[in-house]
Amino acid sequence: MGLLSKKDLKLITDPLADNNPITIQVLGICSALAITAELKASIVMSVAVLFVMGLGNLTISLMRNIIPPKIRIIVQLIVVATLVIIVDLVLKAFAYELSKTLSVFVGLIITNCIIMGRFEAFALANGPIRSFIDGVGNALGYALILIIVGFFRELLGSGTLLGFKVLGDPIEKTGVYAFGYENNGFMLLAPMALITVGIIIWIQRSRNEALIEDN
């Protein structure tokens, strides 16, 4: 990697596993859970967060020396809100149906704790390029969980992936349905998102003992 030094590379790889924003830092759960019933929505949400986080971290980092500390939260919120409005308008223009499914959750990227958290913890103290990389890394970590959850919920819940019927046709009984498989409609309900994330945390922590909490 000539482009990225080892330290910079760590900024991207760390949030993917051992410092994942959702399962370890407990940030950004609000919007992560509500929209993961379909894989497509998860992917679009991930891209939106990637855009907002990368550019947001960059902007805040560029402004870090001129923001008065007392009003920094308002400044940060305005920066995020502006970026989110761009995302929202683009979605409404090019993917109207999807923006209906995501409804208010696009707007809620503004208060996504992961974004504010990274601004506070990283962008305010580091240079613009490293901040941008950190933003991208954390957004990728967020995307990873979203896509895993979305993948399993859509596959088990409606037997499709991105709308394609990968498990066969439930009405004509082809594919796995021929063996008596039924879609688990429960996976599409909101509470199952929580339980799926709970299971991901379980798997991750049983593979890495260092992450276990003492209650």
Binding site: P191, L194, G198, I201, W202, R205, N215
Partner: peptide, 15 residues
């Protein structure tokens, strides 16, 4: 042990 803290809280919230 791996479920302690965050994991079990997620699952309880789900229930």
């Amino acid at each position: 042990a791996p479920l302690r803290g965050l994991g079990i809280t997620f699952i309880i919230t789900g229930l």
